[in-house]
Amino acid sequence: MVDFLTLGFLQRSLMAAALTGGVCAAIGVFVVLRGLAFIGAGTAHAAFAGVALAYLLGGPPMPFAIAFGLGTAWIIGLLEERGRMKLDVSIGISYTATMALAILFIGLMKTYNAEVYGYLFGSILSVTADELKLTAGLAAVVVGLLTLFAKEFFFLAFDQEMAEASGVPARRFFFLLLTLVALTIVVSLKTVGAILVFALLLIPAATAYQLTSSLRGGAHDRGFAQDRRRDPGLRAAADPGGHRVSTDVQPAPDDGLLGGDRRARLRRRRPAVVPVRPADRSGHRAPRHGRVLRRRRTLPQTSAQARDFLKRLAHCLQRAFPKVGPVLVRFQT
């Protein structure tokens, strides 16, 4: 049944997809947090222009794509740094200018070249062993650097000026981030194309952004808040009256499939004074002081949970699509 997995080209494709998806998701976290979302689109189309020029001149596509991608990312970064132009404006200009160049280069070609369009839409089944090695090498470098300098990249994403003022070489890290983004996009071009790479950068990070409220929660260990344990004695001493500020999230009325939007969840986390629950005989302690308890969202395990899930799904659809919703509710009942 799984014989097709023994095919070499399919193995390479699957590995390339996994590597590209992983590295784009990892760097996408910093891209989204730093507010550089559209740089993915700008750089990808600039790299495509580089590929088109390479085919026009008969040169190797990768160096041209790297030159165009890096050049565009750095120019956008410099313009933002000098404050002369807003980021979205400079990205918009570079995006359209490089795409126009790409179309010009393609138009200047004397024959139709299908390979060029492969870089626009991706051709994952034609990934070669060398390209796979290049993707794996870049993934290792990008993930390694992001892990090593997670602390600095997060400070940069939160407040670049404060990071610089606090003794972090934020400017260098900003350009390092731009360089890594450009390289990731260029190497992913052949696999997923200039359009899909933008989605791979944004969607995983944007999803995580909706579900987390802590740097530690958004991706794997990012260097902050490693030790969340606190001395329980200190907590007791801090409030001998037996009351404390708690951030425990109370069950909220269902207002959607995921229990409400992020804004509502943040409101629910506002502190409420509740009595401290002492440890019981079995040694079960009250939830840790000040710790945000998340509502666990798991797949339905029982038929009752499945029915409840479907009911909420129908409710959401009814709100989103008033005409289709009632039909679904009738179908469900």
Partner: peptide, 13 residues
């Protein structure tokens, strides 16, 4: 308001 960071992480910066 939606930046995923806690007060402690902000101070740790």
């Amino acid at each position: 308001p939606y930046f995923p960071i806690t007060a402690r992480e902000a101070v740790l910066m």
